[in-house]
Nucleic acid binder design. Structure first.
Lengths: 243, 243
DNA sequence: TCAAAAGTGTTCTGTTTACACCCATGG
DNA sequence: CCATGGGTGTAAACAGAACACTTTTGA
């Protein structure tokens, strides 16, 4: 039941008449794309090449079409820029300040995406002006985009402590050191190696492979893979990765 | 930067022309209003009195006007129904399935609100067909409103464990028993009285008053009040109310 | 005097933190 | 043979969970 206009006289039994009185607005999606490249958590930005705010950095975005829902719009926008599909995305928040976009009244729904930069899946970015920024070196962005990124980082932090979304940022096979570096980047603090490994092993959601990664050291380090079945069989509520 | 139509030829320097190509949609807000009345966590629903879906239960909602942002729209909608102002509200999620509202393509941004039912502030509901339902007795609702409530309950559960939003559901002065009942309702589990009180006292965010509430027992029970200064001085990150 | 709710501490268990040395290997 | 990162365990501190009896007072 919509009661937006209960003060005014109107025929609420006439659905179309009712709906047609209402204001329509532009709905955009903006994507915070996080990537992890072995050491650093980064976010993908593009340089705006038209007025207003020309030459300022910005998140990628696009407008919702009537033929799609918001998730589909976010997936489409991400795909246009990166060429990637089947990427983890999650709706973050909707931004609606009246003057947020000086061009026209626009409400934006922010999404964040997690992609693995080390993987060969991700060979190129399709927009020339795009650049990866370390998350603590993000420049001033247009509109409310800095606010969006701040909120996305906070959400990522909380999520990564209770859900296995961190693996979306790693290659399929990864070392313990990579996993630890990832969590150190996300949480922005150093972690103790032994405590970290003990905790991860306790969760029992990884397969230790026979392969070693020989690029990082002379000894080589074992590779691990996230085992989704193991994870699902453990808990409905995610893990409690208090680190 | 909006790249919704990069495949098509267009003059991106002409802002208006650019924006005007895009689809406009109706934006609604729907409010999940939680209330706590000494024992039970409840949600406020209204009976829809027009077709389609006449006589079905629904959340309250309304359409966004161009002159307001989403928070303001949610506050307005809440005020129309309850007459209340200065209520805790938080944006929850946006719902955008193409057929979610058979009347017209509508995207809805869900908000949840927390109000104290025991307070005399809340003397009456302004819509006759409104009714409080226990959160585990919610009937089938129109559209995706059941989904919204489920998500709101989950969010409330997580929030209440780390932020002092539970106090929004209580009168200014409350007993420990009331606070415990509230958390038991939110978390849907029985808690141990001694452990609960020990933990709350450890947080050191309440003032114990000299007054007693004499209505609940012959002995009477001390009243407490949330002390926001104490809370703010403790932590930036909220508390860790693992109970 | 008793019914009904308030109030109060201790022990046990599990989790988190702090911490340092040997291993394997390629150069 | 040594420099580099990989791998491993234990003890102390802390937080959570389990648990039962006494107090007050209006009816």
């Amino acid at each position: 039941m919509k009661i937006g206009n209960t003060d005014q006289h109107e025929d609420v039994n006439s659905k179309l008449q009712y709906y047609n009185k209402e204001d329509q607005v532009l709905l955009a999606v903006d994507c915070i794309i996080f990537g992890f490249d072995e050491k650093e958590l980064k976010v993908l930005l593009v340089k705006r090449d038209f007025e207003p705010e020309k030459d300022k950095w910005s998140l990628i975005g696009g407008f919702l079409k009537k033929s799609e829902n918001l998730d589909q719009a976010a997936i489409r926008v991400l795909n246009i820029l990166t060429g990637l599909k089947d990427i983890y995305m999650e709706q973050l928040h909707s931004y609606s300040e009246i003057d947020r976009d000086p061009g026209q009244r626009t409400i934006s729904v922010a999404y964040f995406a997690l992609i693995d930069l080390s993987s060969k899946n991700f060979d190129r970015i399709k927009i020339d002006s795009a650049k990866w920024y370390k998350i603590n070196k993000v420049p001033q962005l247009i509109f409310d985009h800095n606010e969006m990124i701040d909120k996305a980082i906070q959400r990522l932090r909380r999520r990564a402590l209770i859900k296995p979304i961190g693996f979306e940022l790693l290659p399929e096979k990864f070392t313990m050191r990579q996993l630890q570096s990832l969590y150190e980047s996300i949480l922005d603090k150093k972690l103790d190696k032994r405590n970290f490994i003990n905790k991860v092993n306790l969760l029992d959601i990884l397969d230790k492979l026979d392969e070693k990664d020989m690029t990082s050291s002379r000894k080589g380090s074992f590779l691990y893979r996230f085992n989704e079945e193991k994870y699902n069989s453990k808990s409905e509520e995610g893990f409690n990765f208090k680190i």
